[in-house]
Design a binder for these strands. Structure first.
Length: 835
RNA sequence: GCCGGUGUGGUGGAAUGGUAGACACCAGGGACUUAAAAUCCCUUGCGGGCAACCGCGUACCGGUUCGAGUCCGGUCACCGGCACCA
C-alpha cells in the first residue's frame, strides 16, 4: 500500500477537529505547560515558509509535553491591526475588517493544513472588539497611573504612510514598513512611560531563561550609563545642567555644546550677538532628517554662541558655548561639557573650531587623537586635587566633591525613550479618551468600553497628517463623561504593538467578558513557560510586552513580575538567490551579475521575495509532499537558531524518509516487545530524541530516527520496535504516526491515539553496548581500533591494543613510555624510539 | 566604532577536550524495467597506491595538552544588532 499523504492528512485533521485532543483545561491537576509562539500578522499573501519553523518546533515540544503528562496550553491568534491591511483596503476599496476576516480565514486553513495542535477554542484576534476592549482598558489604567501622557515632541514622520513612527520602526532613516524617507516633525502625541521601568526591565532579566543574545540586546537597547549631572553657571546668569559619564575629566572641559533644540538657545536670544547665524543653524538642523543628522562620516558642524559663556565649576574658567547637532536633545540634558582631550567627538569638533585641548588623563597622545580609555592605565594631571589618581579613583572623588558643593550628583541615564503610542491611522484601537474644554483629557468610563471603531466608508489618509477618524465629526463630537459639557474624542489610534503586548494573557481566558483574564486562569497558567519568536522582536514587542506585564503586576492583574520564563529564537528561512555569481557558468556571466546586482550577487541566499521568484508557498509544498514532509523538512533543515536556505531538492529527502517509515508496516515481524537485535539502538534513539526536543535540536533528533529506521531495514524489526518508533515520530509527523499506529493495530490494542500515549522511556543501561569499539592512538594519532567488553579494566584494553596487528607494527623498535585510557572510548600509547 | 554571533566535504549540516564529516542533499556506478519515474544496493573530504596502507585536512598564525573543530592569545572574513547616547 502506498503512503497516500493527502488522504491520511485529511482523515486525521477531520478526526482532531471532532475529538479536540488539544484542548487545554484550566485548573487541571496535571502539571501545566504553556508554550507560546508569536501570533502571526494575517497578511494577504498567506503563510510564509518562515512561519512553520517556529510553529512546528513549538508544536513538537507541546505534543511531547502532552505525552509526558502535562496539561498543555498551545494557543494561536491573529495580530490583525496594522498598516498593510489598511493600505490594501484603501487601494482596493474594501473595508479593512473584511480584508482581515478573509486573511484570518486563509491563515486558519493553512495552519490546520499543517496539523498544528493549537487549541482552536482559544483563538484571539486583536481587531475583535471583545479583545480590544481590554487593550483599551489597559491603556486607561496606564493613563490613570500617569504612564500615558500627551506631549508635543519631534517625531519620526513617514512621508509615505503619512504617519508617526516609533523610533523602533525607523531603520536606517527610512520607514521599516514602506522604505520611504522619514523626517522630523513636531506633533502632539500620546506617550507611554516605559522609561520609568527601564531599570526593572534590566534587573529582572536576571532570573529569566532567555537566550543570552536576547538579554544583551535588550540591555544594550535600554542603554544604562552611570555618570554625573553637573551644574555649569553661565555669564547669562542662569545655570546649564549637563550629563557626563566622565566627571573625572571635568578639569579638561574647555567648551560646552547645546543641541540646536535646547530651550536656552531661544531664551538667550537677546544676549546672543550672532543671533542670525545661530538661528540659521537651528533652522537647518530642524529640516534635516534624523538620518542626515546621524550620518557618521560627515564632518561636525556648529556655531559658536557669542555673548554667553559657560563657567567651569572646578576652576572658574570662562569657556565658550556652541550649538551643534552632534548633541542630541533627547538624551541626557541636551547639553554637554566638551572634553576634547578624552572624547573622540569633542576632539574632532575642537580641532575644527580651534578649541583648547587640555590633557587631564595621561596615557595617550592628544596631539593625534583623544585618549578615551577608562581603565587604570591613565593618571590624572592638570586636575587640581585629582592629580595623581587613577581614573577609577578620580570618578568617586570628584562626584563626592560635586555633591559637597551642591553643584552635581551621580546620575543614571538610559538610551531608552518613552514609547510614542499614537498613530494617525484608521485601522487600530481607538484611544478611549475625550478632550473636554473644562476638564482636559478625560478617560471614558470602563462601562463604555469597547470604544468601537466607527463604521465608515472612507478611511483615506488625510493631507494634514491627522487621523482619518478626525473627519468623522459625528463620532468625534461627544460629551464629557466628567462634566457633561461638549468634548471631542481622541482621533489617534494605537500602534500595532498594543494588541500584541498582552495577548498571551487573553489566551488563558479568552471568552471572559468581565475581566481581561480571571485571577484563577492567570494564576494557573502564568507565566508563559516557553516563548519562541524572532530576534527582530527583541527590542520591540518583547520589551513592550514585558513593560505592560510589569505594569499589570503593579496594579495586581497578574501575579508574576515577568510574562515569559523562557525565550528562544529561530533563524530565518532564506531563498536561493537567482543572481548569485556562484551559479554563473562563465566569467563574463559572473561579471555581468556583479555589475548588475553588486554585492547582492555575492550571496548564495537571500530573503524570499516575489521579484526574485524564490518564494516558497507552504500550500504548494503540502500539495506535492504533504504536511508531514513539510514539518519534517523545516525541522531537519539545520540548526534552529541559524538562518537556513530552503532547498526543493532536500525536501525530497524528508519525503523519502517518511516513505521508508511507512513501508516498515509491511516489513514488521511478530513480537510485541522491543527486539533484542534493536534494543540498544531503540533505547539510544529514545534518549537522543527526548533530549534533543528539549533543546530544539530537532535536526539531530530526526537524524537519530533516520539512523534507527536504517537499522530496522538492515536487521528487521518487531512490532515492539515499530511501536516505539511511531511514538517518537508522533510529535514530528502526527498524521503519518496516527495512521501507522492504527494500521499496525496499536490503536485497537490501547484504545488511544499515538499522541495520547505516554512518551517512550529509555533505560540508561540499555543504551550502552556490551562490546565497545575503542580507538587506539599512538602518540595521539589514530592507528587502529579494538573491540573490548564494556568497562573492561585498563590492563585488559592496553593488552588488547598492544596485541593488535597494526599497533604491533607501530611498536617495532619503540618503547612504551606512557599509556592513557579513556574508559570505553580510547587508548593512547606514547612511544619513544628504543635505545 | 561598540555589542553579539559564525567560519567544518560539491551542498545543508553532525561531533560533553577523546575515532572529524553522523544524518541528509547532490553526483557517479549497479540492480529491477521494453523504457522512464519510483525503489533497492554500492561509492563518495583531498592527494598517493593494484592493495594492505600512507600523507594531508575543521578560515589563518601561535600556545596549552598524551590528545584541540572544541580551550587560550592574536589575525582575517562574513552575518546580526546598535550607532554622534556625552
Amino acid at each position: 500500500m502506498k503512503y497516500d499523504f493527502t488522504a491520511i492528512e485529511k482523515k486525521w485533521q477531520d478526526r482532531w477537529e471532532e475529538v479536540k485532543p488539544y484542548a487545554a483545561e484550566t485548573g487541571s491537576e496535571k502539571p501545566k505547560f504553556y508554550g507560546l509562539i508569536e501570533f502571526p500578522y494575517p497578511s494577504a499573501a498567506g503563510l510564509h515558509v518562515g512561519h512553520p519553523r517556529p510553529f512546528t518546533a513549538m508544536d513538537i515540544v507541546a505534543r511531547k509535553k502532552r505525552m509526558e503528562g502535562f496539561n498543555v496550553l498551545f494557543p494561536i491568534g491573529f495580530d490583525a491591526f496594522g498598516l498593510p491591511t489598511e493600505n490594501f483596503a484603501i487601494k482596493n476599496h474594501i473595508h479593512p475588517a473584511i480584508v482581515t476576516k478573509q486573511n484570518v480565514e486563509n491563515f486558519t486553513r493553512q495552519l490546520k493544513m499543517l496539523g498544528y495542535g493549537f487549541d482552536w477554542d482559544r483563538v484571539v484576534d486583536t481587531t475583535d472588539p471583545n479583545y480590544y476592549k481590554w487593550t483599551q482598558w489597559i491603556f486607561l489604567q496606564l493613563f490613570k497611573h500617569g504612564l500615558a501622557y500627551k506631549t508635543t515632541m519631534p517625531v519620526n514622520w513617514c512621508t509615505s504612510c503619512k504617519c508617526v513612527l516609533a523610533n523602533e520602526e525607523v531603520v536606517e532613516g527610512v520607514c521599516e514598513r514602506c522604505g520611504s524617507e522619514v523626517v522630523r516633525r513636531e506633533k502632539s502625541q500620546w506617550m507611554l512611560g516605559i522609561t520609568k521601568y527601564a531599570q526593572r526591565l534590566i534587573d529582572d532579566l536576571d532570573g529569566l531563561d532567555f537566550i543570552e543574545r536576547v538579554k544583551t540586546q535588550q540591555i544594550n537597547w535600554i542603554g544604562r550609563s552611570t555618570g554625573a549631572e553637573v551644574v555649569f553657571k553661565t555669564t547669562a546668569g542662569d545655570n546649564l545642567l549637563i550629563f557626563t559619564t566622565r566627571p573625572d575629566t571635568l578639569f579638561g572641559a574647555t567648551y560646552m555644546v547645546l543641541s540646536p533644540e535646547h530651550p536656552y538657545v531661544k531664551r538667550w536670544k537677546d544676549r546672543i550677538e550672532n543671533w542670525d547665524a545661530v538661528a540659521a543653524y537651528v533652522d537647518e538642523a530642524a529640516h534635516k532628517s534624523d538620518f542626515e543628522r546621524a550620518e557618521l562620516n560627515k564632518e561636525k558642524t556648529g556655531v559658536r554662541i557669542e555673548g554667553v559663556r559657560g563657567i567651569n565649576p572646578v576652576n572658574g574658567k570662562e569657556i565658550p558655548i556652541f550649538i551643534s547637532d552632534y548633541v542630541l536633545v533627547t538624551y541626557g540634558t541636551g547639553a554637554i561639557m566638551a572634553v576634547p582631550a578624552h572624547d573622540d567627538r569633542d576632539w574632532e569638533f575642537a580641532r575644527k573650531f580651534g578649541c583648547e585641548i587640555i590633557e587631564v588623563v595621561q596615557g595617550g597622545n592628544i596631539e593625534e587623537s583623544a585618549f578615551t580609555l577608562k581603565d587604570d592605565t591613565g593618571i590624572m594631571v592638570n586636575s587640581g586635587f585629582l592629580d595623581g589618581m587613577t581614573v577609577k579613583q578620580a570618578i568617586p572623588a570628584i562626584t563626592a566633591w560635586l555633591e559637597e558643593k551642591g553643584i552635581g550628583h551621580e546620575k543614571v541615564n538610559y538610551k531608552l525613550r518613552d514609547w510614542v503610542f499614537s498613530r494617525q491611522r484608521y485601522w487600530g484601537e481607538p484611544i478611549p479618551l475625550v478632550k473636554c474644554e473644562k476638564c482636559g483629557w478625560v478617560a471614558l468610563p470602563e462601562s463604555e468600553l469597547p470604544l468601537l471603531l466607527p463604521q465608515v466608508d472612507s478611511y483615506e489618509l488625510t493631507d494634514d497628517g491627522e487621523s482619518p477618524l478626525s473627519k468623522m465629526t459625528d463620532w468625534v463630537n461627544t460629551s464629557c463623561p466628567c462634566c457633561g459639557g461638549p468634548a471631542k474624542r481622541e482621533t489617534d489610534t494605537m500602534p500595532q504593538w498594543a494588541g500584541s503586548s498582552w495577548y498571551f494573557l487573553r489566551y488563558m481566558d479568552p471568552h471572559n467578558d468581565k475581566e481581561l483574564v480571571s485571577k484563577e486562569a492567570e494564576e494557573y497558567w502564568g507565566p508563559v513557560d516557553w516563548y519562541n519568536g524572532g530576534m527582530e522582536h527583541t527590542t520591540l514587542h518583547l520589551l513592550y510586552s514585558r513593560f505592560w506585564h510589569k505594569f499589570l503586576y503593579d496594579i495586581g492583574v497578574v501575579h508574576t513580575k515577568e510574562p515569559y520564563a523562557k525565550r528562544t529564537s529561530h533563524g530565518m528561512i532564506l531563498g536561493r538567490n537567482p543572481h548569485f555569481i556562484g551559479y554563473a557558468e562563465t566569467e563574463e556571466e559572473k561579471q555581468a551579475l556583479l555589475a548588475k546586482y553588486g554585492s547582492q550577487a555575492t550571496r548564495p541566499s537571500v530573503k524570499m521575495s516575489k521579484s526574485l521568484g524564490n518564494v516558497v508557498n507552504p500550500d504548494d509544498v503540502v500539495k506535492a509532499y504533504g504536511a508531514d514532509t513539510m514539518r519534517l523538512y523545516i525541522m531537519f533543515i539545520g540548526d534552529f537558531e541559524k538562518t537556513a536556505t530552503w532547498s526543493d531538492e532536500a525536501v525530497k529527502g524528508s519525503k523519502r524518509f517518511l516513505d521508508r517509515c511507512w513501508n516498515l508496516l509491511e516489513l514488521v515481524k511478530e513480537g510485541d516487545a522491543v527486539s533484542a537485535a534493536n534494543e540498544s539502538a531503540v533505547h539510544k534513539t529514545i534518549k537522543k530524541v527526548t533530549e534533543d526536543v528539549n533543546t530544539l535540536k530537532m535536526n539531530t533528533a530526526i537524524a537519530a530516527m533516520m539512523a534507527l529506521v536504517n537499522d530496522f531495514y538492515a536487521k528487521g524489526l518487531s512490532r515492539g520496535d515499530l511501536e516505539q518508533l511511531i511514538l517518537l515520530l508522533s510529535p514530528f509527523v502526527p498524521h503519518l504516526a496516527e495512521e501507522m499506529w492504527e494500521q499496525a493495530g496499536f490503536a485497537a490494542k490501547y484504545g488511544k491515539m499515538a499522541m495520547q500515549m505516554p512518551w517512550p522511556k529509555y533505560d540508561e543501561a540499555k543504551t550502552k553496548d556490551a562490546i565497545r569499539e575503542m580507538a587506539v592512538q599512538v602518540n595521539g594519532k589514530l592507528r587502529s581500533t579494538v573491540k573490548v567488553p564494556a568497562d573492561a579494566p585498563d590492563e585488559t584494553v592496553i593488552a588488547a591494543a598492544c596485541a593488535d596487528e597494526k599497533i604491533k607494527r607501530q611498536m617495532e623498535g619503540m618503547q612504551l613510555v606512557k599509556t592513557i585510557v579513556v574508559k570505553n572510548k580510547l587508548i593512547n600509547l606514547i612511544l619513544k624510539p628504543a635505545k
